[in-house]
């Protein structure tokens, strides 16, 4: 193999394929990753089914301005997330395109922010001038967004809410 590039390439790609199939494709056989929950159906109804709706436009703005770099939408079954509402289920974001789970929580988690703060006017005021609503906030002001855009973004935020799922068979809400 120290002289044969083709063998090297073949073996390297073979091992790559093994890991990829195991961690990326076998999960497609998991039923609960492939079953949308009522929350997902609600999100689909307000965003995916109406690409021209305010909530859909708000979601675009959320992405374009990188909200997900400081706000997660990911409540884990851990002690740190106890106050953030129901633990996320695999099916909750089934239709999200792309996912906005985020990776850093510089600001609060927004998975269920619509349940916590259902007041659109609050969100608009907060987006325009965060410090006027939340003292000590380090969120940048989004004054450059038009009234229409602010309205859309706020509309999206209030649709981020939990819909009860009577058939939820997942583990009870364990905490570390």
């Amino acid at each position: 193999m120290e002289r044969n590039p083709y063998l090297l390439v073949f073996v390297a790609i073979f091992f790559f394929a093994v890991g990829t199939v195991a961690t990326m494709f076998i999960p497609f056989t998991e039923e609960n990753l492939m079953t949308p929950t009522p929350t997902a159906e609600y999100r689909k109804q307000v965003v995916n089914d109406n690409p021209q709706s305010k909530a859909a436009k708000g979601r675009e703005l959320y992405m374009q301005n990188g909200c997900m770099y400081c706000h997660t939408q990911w409540v884990r079954p851990t002690k740190t997330d106890e106050k953030l509402g129901p633990v996320i289920r695999a099916g909750d974001t089934y239709y999200d395109s792309p996912h906005l789970h985020g990776s850093n929580r510089t600001g609060p988690d927004l998975l269920w922010v619509g349940d916590r703060i259902p007041d659109k006017a609050w969100h608009i005021k907060h987006l325009k001038d965060p410090q006027s609503v939340v003292a000590g906030s380090i969120m940048p002001p989004y004054k450059f967004l038009s009234d229409e855009e602010l309205d859309a973004l706020a509309e999206y935020l209030v649709t981020l809410k939990h819909i009860d799922n009577p058939t939820d068979q997942s583990d009870p809400q364990y905490r570390y």
């Binding site: 390297a12 990326m24 990753l33 909750d92 974001t93 395109s97 792309p98 996912h99």
Partner: peptide
């Protein structure tokens, strides 16, 4: 040699354009 072959594979699998091929939420996160 291995790196320049892995890169396009990783890049293409990781950048499957969401509008054309929707992966259900958690799979896309993965």
């Amino acid at each position: 040699v291995a790196s320049i072959l892995w890169l396009p594979l990783v890049y293409i699998i990781g950048n499957i354009p969401e509008p054309f091929l929707h992966l259900p939420g958690v799979h896309q996160l993965n």
